[in-house]
């Protein structure tokens, strides 16, 4: 583990604007602006935004279970780390501020409200899945009963030292990771994931670029853009530079495709122990 890198990753934040669109008689309250750690979740941030909206006098009180969230015209997935949501939004437009609409209309069926308790449960399941990929869940099954909840509390309380005190066990394992927990996101499709070893069969380290090519080999992005120039010469020239143009973004940074996968796993994982990379195909 590289302390400096892990510390920087933990401390990076994104500016977020919450706007309430309630259609009430008083008009909508002023937006709520905040800086949120990339590793946190909307389930933790939303109550504070609502408290701000509810502060004005005579306004109707907005309850957390009655709202749903949207960004760039799409319902948000509240269980994805905010940094990933921000990286997805930034690929669409280069605005650096993440604009989230809080809506009081009927939620679309695709939206799932996730409260703090649900988020805690989902977070711990993600850690177990990541550890299942890395060690067949050897580490999590040998942990003490309170260690996983403590990991979650350190996320809630933004406590880097407490987090790494326990996370070290998940990262510094006795044996090499069998597979690296890596999820890739393209547009608003569900993430893709595959079994990725840290090394090739010849013993050389697998890179991030190779890992993503491997995931996409069996499951290319489904939504093909109709505007893609196919039969023109430009397509053959883009074939000449395979994956050279693809951007790989994590924590707001363009990740060099030659980065070893194991480096990303140890240093660029989110607290849920997954490496989350947003790609432009």
């Amino acid at each position: 583990m590289d302390y400096e890198v892990s510390r920087k990753v933990w401390e990076s934040q994104v500016p977020v604007q919450f706007t309430l669109q309630s259609g009430g008689t008083l008009g909508d309250p002023l937006p709520y602006y905040t800086m949120l750690p990339r590793f946190t979740y909307l389930a933790l941030a939303l109550p504070k935004a609502l408290t701000s909206f509810n502060r004005r006098e005579d306004g109707e009180t907005i309850h957390v279970e009655k709202v749903w969230l949207e960004a760039n015209g799409k319902p948000l997935k509240m269980y994805i780390p905010i940094g990933v949501i921000n990286d997805q939004a930034n690929l669409l437009e280069t605005d650096s501020i993440l604009e989230i609409s809080v809506k009081t209309s009927t939620a679309p069926p695709k939206f799932q409200m996730v409260d703090r308790d649900m988020m805690e449960a989902m977070f711990m399941q993600n850690i177990k899945e990541a550890d299942y990929l890395k060690t067949k869940a050897e580490v999590t099954q040998s942990m003490m009963k309170d260690e996983l909840p403590q990991l979650w509390r350190s996320v809630v309380n933004n406590n880097f030292d407490e987090f790494w005190g326990i996370n070290r066990k998940l990262m510094e394992t006795n044996n090499e990771f069998s597979h690296v927990p890596l999820r890739i996101y393209y547009k608003d499709e569900p993430f893709k994931q595959a079994l990725l070893t840290i090394k090739h069969t010849d013993g050389s380290l697998r890179t991030i670029g190779e890992s993503i090519a491997e995931i996409l080999r069996l499951s290319p992005p489904t939504s093909s853009e109709s505007s893609t120039p196919t039969s023109e010469s430009s397509s053959s020239s883009s074939d000449a530079t395979p994956s050279g143009e693809r951007r790989l973004i994590s924590h707001g940074i363009d990740i060099p495709s030659h980065t070893p996968l194991i480096f990303a796993a140890k240093n660029l994982s989110y607290p849920d122990n997954f490496v989350h990379i947003v790609i432009s195909v």
Partner: peptide, 20 residues
Amino acid sequence: YIDSVFCPSPDTTFEVLARC
């Protein structure tokens, strides 16, 4: 649950479940 160990995330596709 998978292998009596963990609940996959809600937007895990069956393609991912099959591959992993």
